[in-house]
Design a protein around this nucleic acid. Structure first.
Lengths: 166, 166
DNA sequence: TTTCCTTCGGCACACCGATACGCATGGCTG
DNA sequence: CAGCCATGCGTATCGGTGTGCCGAAGGAAA
């Protein structure tokens, strides 16, 4: 699905304010309310807009610490990886998990209240992950910036080009 | 601000669906619409709900790669740190930046379309960051999971305890 | 215990925005 | 040139939002 300039403007705005009223969004991007709504629906159905969420203030709910954990597995076999990933998916304390190229196999991000809370998470969640051979933990002192919005260059074609490519 | 069980249920829900209609949210958490709206407003004003956003599908907008960059600075002086952080804040390509304890000083996350796109970001954004002495780049092959929702244990007091603590 | 006071939820109503039409326009194709 | 498809606009209706008011529950003090 090709994105024209108006789509990008819609996405840019929704990435910053997911709850903006459709009427207001329409005005910002320069469309009528109905036309705007139709585009937003199309973006949702195409899966480009994955979902809408509320972001909480991490410190205000007592999760001040971000902790990164690099994990190496005992083997790279499919079963080992799958078992590990399924366990990760089941844990609500693991905020993020990436399969990595390079030194470690996985990189995890954990949000903990304090060192004691991290010990709980370590004991009840991390230590139970299957197939782990080595863990390296790094503490974040402070989050400098945290973005959920991807840049969508205003440049580029105004209209869908070669929309034929389905 | 103490959170009772209903607040936690509201937050849990809004973290998953930031656009749920207040009337529906009220039904889910077992309140009338007006009472529910008042609580949501209070959570917003307290800053516990930081903001609402639309999350895009990273692969569908052509940003398949997550890249982590560990950065060490030439010095730890206040000016060096500030200058670096200000430059980071200005870059829209840097999705995340943490001040770290341990080996490296900072950890950055970048979302790029492909290796060529990363080269552009490296050249136009990373290479221009001031005060950098060493950079170590790790590529993520695949994101196993990405959460924005913090766990909010249902357990705990139903009612605010010792609300005196202002 | 009684009374006051504060807090919080429910109810009802007025209004605003969302949504679903039908119609108009413009570009592309045969 | 005719027809089709995509896309935008305006309108009408319906449902949700948000406010004002009341009443219930709980705590404190006399």
């Amino acid at each position: 699905m090709p994105l024209d300039r108006i789509d990008r403007r819609i996405l840019e705005r929704l990435q910053r304010d997911g709850r903006i009223a459709n009427a207001d969004l329409a005005e910002v991007v320069g469309l009528s309310a109905s036309a705007c709504l139709r585009r937003v629906r199309a973006l949702e159905e195409a899966g480009i807009i994955d979902r809408y969420v509320a972001l909480l203030d991490q410190s205000k709910i007592g999760r001040r610490m971000d902790i990164f954990v690099e994990i190496s597995l005992k083997s790279q076999s499919n079963e080992t990886l799958s078992a590990f990933e399924e366990a990760v998916a089941r844990s609500t304390e693991i905020m993020e998990c990436h399969l990595m190229a390079g030194d470690a196999d996985y990189l995890l991000r954990i949000a903990a209240a304090d060192p004691v809370d991290f010990e709980r998470i370590h004991r009840d969640h991390l230590a139970r992950l299957p197939g782990v051979s080595r863990m390296r933990t790094s503490f974040a002192i402070r989050a400098v910036s945290k973005n959920t919005a991807f840049p969508l260059p205003e440049a580029g074609p105004d209209l869908p080009q070669q929309a034929k490519a389905k």
